[in-house]
C-alpha cells in the first residue's frame, strides 16, 4: 500500500494540471499582493488631512445648498432646508489607508478555502476520471488487482495532495499579505466600533483547520464521483450540477426550509463555525416571533459530522460499484 501511495503522490504532483494549478495560484497570490500593496499606505497623517479637507468641502457645499434652499422655499418652511443640521466631523470622512492584516486574515483564509475547494474538486475528479478515460486505471489493476487499495491510494493522494497545495498557497498568501502589512499597513485591528475580539489567534487557527477539512471533503467528493462515473467532465458536471441546480431545487421544497439541511449549508457551517437561519413562528395572537428562540443553529462539529456522513455514503456506493463492475 505504501508503494502504491508513494507512486500516486508522485504522479499527482507530476501531472500538468496540478502544476498549472500551482502556477495559477501563485499568479493569483501575486496579483492580490500587488493589489493590496498598491491600495495600502502608512500615511495616516495625510489621510487625516485629506479627511479634514473633504469635511471642509462638504461643509461649504452643505452651506451653499442650504442657502439655495432658503431662497426657494417660503420662510415658514425653512426647517426643510436643514438649518439645524451640523456638518459632519472630519472623522466621518476618514478612512484608514493602512491594510490591516488582523482584519483581513479570516477573509483571506475563507477565500483560500473556497478557491481551494473548487481546485480540489477539479483535481480529485481529474486524477481518477482521466485515468479511467485513458485506460491507465485498468492497466494498474493488472499490477494491483485489489481495487479498494488502488482506489484508496488514489483518493488519499489527491485529497492530501490538494490539501497540501491549498495549505501552502494559503500560507504564501498570508505571507505576502503579512509583508504588505509590515511595509505598507499594520498588523493591528482598525475596527474600533466592533465587538471586542477575544482569542483571535485561536479562532484563526480553528478557522484554518476547518477550511482544510472543507477542502478535503470537497476534493473527496470529486474523487468519489470520478470512481463512480469513470469520467472527469461527467464527475464535475454532476458535482456542480448537484450543488447549484440539485440543491436549488431540493432546497426550495417546504418553502425553502429544506435548503438549510443540505450539503452547502453544512459546508458553510463547517467553514464559518456556525450556520443560522430564522424559523418564523406565529404566536397565538397572530404575531411572528423574532426572538433568539426562533433562530436555528448548526455548529461546526455537527455540520462536519453530517458532511462526513454524506461523503461516506457516496464512497460506499462508489466503492461497491467499483468492486463489482467489470473493467472493459
Amino acid at each position: 500500500m505504501n508503494r502504491l501511495l508513494s507512486v500516486e503522490f508522485r504522479r499527482f504532483f507530476a501531472r500538468r494540471l496540478t502544476r498549472w494549478s500551482c502556477v495559477a495560484l501563485l499568479l493569483g497570490i501575486a496579483a492580490i499582493g500587488i493589489g493590496t500593496f498598491a491600495t495600502s499606505s502608512t500615511d495616516v497623517a495625510g489621510a487625516h488631512r485629506s479627511a479634514a479637507q473633504r469635511a471642509d468641502r462638504f461643509a461649504v457645499q452643505q452651506q451653499k445648498a442650504r442657502q439655495d434652499c432658503l431662497a426657494t422655499v417660503p420662510p415658514d418652511q425653512a426647517d426643510q432646508c436643514g438649518i439645524d443640521e451640523q456638518a459632519p466631523p472630519p472623522a466621518a470622512f476618514y478612512s484608514d489607508p493602512r491594510f490591516s492584516f488582523h482584519d483581513h486574515v479570516r477573509d483571506l483564509i475563507e477565500t483560500g478555502c473556497v478557491i481551494g475547494s473548487l481546485l480540489g474538486l477539479i483535481l480529485g475528479a481529474s486524477l481518477i476520471g482521466a485515468e479511467w478515460q485513458a485506460g491507465t486505471f485498468a492497466s494498474l489493476l493488472t499490477w494491483e488487482p485489489r481495487r479498494l487499495r488502488v482506489a484508496a491510494a488514489k483518493v488519499t493522494a489527491v485529497v492530501l495532495g490538494s490539501l497540501a497545495i491549498v495549505t501552502v498557497a494559503t500560507v504564501v498568501l498570508l505571507g505576502v499579505e503579512s509583508l504588505v502589512a509590515a511595509t505598507h499597513g499594520t498588523f493591528a485591528t482598525l475596527v474600533t466600533d466592533g465587538p471586542p475580539q477575544s482569542h483571535f489567534a485561536k479562532q484563526t487557527w480553528a478557522l484554518a483547520g476547518r477550511a482544510g477539512l472543507v477542502v478535503m471533503l470537497v476534493t473527496g467528493i470529486g474523487a468519489a464521483l470520478a470512481l463512480l462515473l469513470r469520467h472527469t467532465v461527467a464527475s464535475l458536471g454532476v458535482a456542480i450540477g448537484y450543488l447549484i441546480v440539485g440543491e436549488g431545487i431540493i432546497g426550495s421544497l417546504r418553502h425553502g426550509d429544506v435548503r438549510h439541511h443540505l450539503l452547502q449549508s453544512r459546508l458553510d457551517a463547517l467553514l464559518h463555525g456556525r450556520y443560522e437561519w430564522f424559523i418564523p413562528t406565529r404566536a397565538p395572537d397572530g404575531s411572528i416571533g423574532f426572538g433568539p428562540e426562533h433562530v436555528a443553529v448548526v455548529h461546526a462539529l455537527n455540520a462536519g459530522v453530517e458532511a462526513l456522513i454524506f461523503v461516506a455514503l457516496l464512497y460506499a456506493v462508489a466503492l461497491t460499484i467499483l468492486q463489482r463492475r467489470d473493467v472493459t
Binding site: R15, R16, A134, T136, S139
Partner: peptide, 15 residues
C-alpha cells in the same frame, strides 16, 4: 495504455 504526458521511462518507473 500509458500516461500520455509522461515519458516511457517514467511510465515504466511508476509500474
Amino acid at each position: 495504455q500509458f500516461f500520455r504526458n509522461f515519458s516511457g521511462r517514467r511510465n515504466l518507473r511508476y509500474l
